[in-house]
Design a protein around this nucleic acid. Structure first.
Lengths: 119, 119
DNA sequence: GTTTGTACTGACAAATATGTCAGTGCCGCG
DNA sequence: CGCGGCACTGACATATTTGTCAGTACAAAC
């Protein structure tokens, strides 16, 4: 019986990953950790992302309580995303993940230089 | 141009997630963190997993240097997986992830009890 | 002698994630 | 007027992940 990881799992690790997981979510949070940004500012600051996926991910993060979406009632619309108070509790975790990721990348690279057959 | 997250990204967060990510990897590491297990022992200890996916994930984790695969030259075969020294550096990170995941689950549950409309 | 268990593989199907493309209403710019 | 920017949506195509099913060799249990 295929059960998507996205459906509420009781495993805390899966619960956390379901929030973080998504092709661009890490990058989005990284950008927003330095301050609020408009949708279009985010899009321009993340090369390769499509508007579709950006908005999808943003809305998921809002739904999960990580981001706050503030819309000014102007025309044309101006929407600004920022990290919520709750979302900020996520940042130290990202730091830890990032730290391990960095050593992992170093390890990968050093294996590449050691073994010429790599690739 | 669609680039899989699995292809080496230079982002450390993605690098770490590419190791952890997989429907069952969290659970597998959790089980193995308590000691080495045979393939079939793992399968039986993780309800719902298929042999196919278990072996796929195990081999990926071995490839990434997280697990060690030891095979005794007997018939029938006896293969035992254990967490490598390098893999052990991952465990504290998992703890942190797990910790946040736990509070996240609590948050979700409390929102359920507060809002009767939930579900 | 048929079944069971072991660790695994390959062909294939289903589910999910991501991407492409067009279109929305309104404004300011030239 | 025609165009681009804004924040988004819906239909659809592709990519990736996960699952199903059958099959491998050999030994021990029944």
């Amino acid at each position: 019986m295929p059960v998507s990881k996205k459906e509420l799992s009781e495993c805390p690790i899966d619960a956390m990953l379901s929030v973080i997981d998504g092709r661009w979510k890490g990058t989005i949070l990284w950008r927003l950790s330095e301050g609020p940004l408009r949708t279009s500012e985010l899009r321009r600051s993340i090369p390769g992302i499509t508007e579709r996926m950006l908005i999808r991910h943003l809305h998921e993060l809002v739904r999960d309580g990580i981001l706050i979406r503030r819309q000014e009632a102007t025309v044309p619309p101006c929407v600004r995303y920022s990290i919520s108070k709750y979302g900020r509790t996520l940042l130290p975790v990202l730091e830890v993940i990032c730290g391990w990721g960095r050593t992992h990348l170093r390890r990968l690279h050093s294996m590449c230089t050691q073994a010429p057959a790599c690739r």
